[in-house]
Each structure stands twice: as C-alpha cells, then as structure tokens.
C-alpha cells in the first residue's frame, strides 16, 4: 500500500504544491470536477477510513458554503426570485456550488497530504531551509507527548493533595488548570537545561553541521519529478493562453471542446492521478513478481 509514500519527500511535497495550487487557481467546472474526482479517488486509496469519517461534517459544510454565495452576491442575469428586493440568481447559486467544490477538494487534498507527508518528511525538507528551526520542531514534537504525559501525572498527584480539576466551580477549575500548567512549566524548563547540555556535549554548535536523513533521491524520483514538471508547464502555459478561463458573471461563459483543451484536461488528470497510477503500477509489478515465482 501507498507506493507513492515511499518516494522522496521533495517529490511528494511538490506534487501537493502543484495539485493544491492548481486546484485553488482553476474555477473552470471541468477542472473542478477532475480535481474533485481525483482527490476522492486518492483519499479512498490511501486514507479510506478517516476520509469516509470526515464526510460526516464535510457534506453539511459543502451545502452551507454553497448557499452562502447567492445570499451575499446578487450579480448575474438569470434571476429566479427576490428576497427582500435582493435578486437571487442562478449564476450566484452555481458559483456558490463551484466554490464549495473547490473548498472541499482542497480539504480532501490536504487530508491526503497529511497522510503522505509525515512529520519526518516535512522536517527533512524544512531542515534544508532552516536546520535550526527544523530542530526546534523536532524537539517540540518529542516534548509535546512527554508534556501531555506529565500533565496526567501532575493532575493525579495534585488531586491527591486537594487540587482537583474535575470538581468544584468553574473558577476553581480554571485555578487548578493554571496551577497544573504552572507546575508543568517549571518542570519543563528545569529539565530542558539537561537536554541542552546533552546537545552541547554531543557537539551541537560546531561549525559545518551536516544533516542526515533516511531518504535518498533515486532515479524513479527524478523521473516522476520530470513528468510532474512537464505536465505542470503544459497546464500553466494553457492558463496563460486563456484556455482555462471561465466566468460565472455576468453570465456563464460557454464551454468549448477544442483539441487543445482536451489535451489540457488530459494532462491535468494525469498530473493529479500520478500517485494513483504509481500505486496501480506497483501493484501490477508485485503481482507479476509473485506469479513468476
């Protein structure tokens, strides 16, 4: 599972930068639909459980976001009714739905991003820009669960000496909460000094620090990256030439199917579907490997 997750972090990261950037950029209905479909497919492939779970609040969000627009925007020519002398137009309703699709798609893509771009991959990339800050993040990531554990220990210990967060009025509970936070901070700061010593003792601060990672950039990463750039470039050029423009106001622009726009749709789909294709390809290779033996 998740063949794409094993690619080099830069490939995964750029994939999402491209995909999310283009998704936010295009308002063209066909582009919207392609992106929505691909994000759903990828979510189902890598992130099925939490994706289906998230639909519970995504669907109402989708509807609300779609309904807001006709209420605040009264542009457009095809008026269907008036509310308080304000015209409600078909253009505004459709535009609202389009916006809603876009927002949901972006959220789906981010769901996939969170699944594929784990913290160590993010830190690896961030470390290239700002190694010291990446180290801070790494330390923080280690400290947070430790602090949560300690909060538990402090809460228990304090309850037994009469400082109980779970009972009493709100003021008492806030007081207890602050009390616990205060104990935690002292503890954390005092213990941090030893961590700093441990960093120093292991030579942190020497000149010419290198960064190590378990990731290596392979041929397949280069290949995928090249394909991604080619597909991206085609799409960007297409946009500059105006093939991806679409207007909802004053009324809908016409959808024309030219050979060139077909090419753009295909490249866009290919770009978005890269992880899915890679996944299927790996599955195919795996199966043929087993059947050959």
């Amino acid at each position: 599972m998740k063949a794409f997750a094993n690619y080099h972090p830069i490939v995964i990261f750029l994939y999402f930068v491209f995909v999310i950037g283009l998704t936010m950029f295009y308002m063209h209905p066909i582009y919207l639909i392609i992106s929505l479909a691909m994000s759903i497919l990828l979510s189902l492939q890598i992130n099925q459980k939490s994706f289906l779970h998230s639909l519970k609040w995504m669907v109402p969000l989708f509807v609300i976001a779609a309904l807001i627009n006709p209420l605040i925007s009264h542009d457009g020519e095809k008026i269907i009714l008036y509310i308080d002398d304000n015209p409600i137009t078909i253009e505004a309703i459709v535009y609202g739905f389009a916006m809603s699709v876009m927002i949901c798609t972006v959220i789906f893509w981010f769901g996939c991003y969170n699944k594929l771009m784990t913290s160590d991959k993010f830190l690896y990339l961030f470390g290239k820009i700002s190694p010291a800050f990446a180290l801070i993040i790494s330390l923080t990531l280690r400290l947070v669960p430790r602090f949560q554990q300690q909060i538990g220990a402090i809460t228990q210990a304090q309850r037994a000496v009469g400082m109980d967060v779970t009972s009493g009025n709100l003021l008492h509970r806030i007081k207890c909460g602050i009390h616990i936070l205060s104990i935690l901070i002292t503890w954390a700061l005092e213990n941090a000094i030893e961590t700093a010593d441990s960093m120093k003792a292991r030579g942190y601060g020497l000149p010419k620090r290198s960064t190590f990672s378990l990731f290596s950039f392979e041929k397949r990463d280069a290949l995928t990256l090249t394909i991604m750039f080619i597909l991206m470039t085609i799409n960007v050029i297409g946009s500059f030439l105006g093939y991806t423009d679409y207007y909802f106001y004053p009324t809908f622009s016409e959808l024309v199917l030219q050979p060139i726009s077909l090419l753009l749709y295909t490249t866009y789909t290919l770009l978005l579907a890269l992880p899915i294709i890679i996944e299927l390809w790996e599955a195919f290779k795996w199966r043929s490997l087993i059947s050959n033996n």
Binding site: S130, A132, T140, V144, I193, A196
Partner: peptide, 26 residues
C-alpha cells in the same frame, strides 16, 4: 527563519523556544 539561522542559536535558546512551543501545543 533566515536571521535565526544566521545567528547560530545556542542549544539553550533552542530548548527554551521548543519547550515553550510544546507547552503551548500541549
């Protein structure tokens, strides 16, 4: 971030920032 890198932060400064962020997150 750049200026922070440039400053060559000491381990203890790094730790203070990390600890305070972790407390904020927790």
């Amino acid at each position: 971030f750049l200026s922070f890198e440039h400053k060559k932060p000491k381990p203890r400064e790094i730790l203070i920032i990390a600890v305070m962020s972790a407390i904020a997150v927790a």
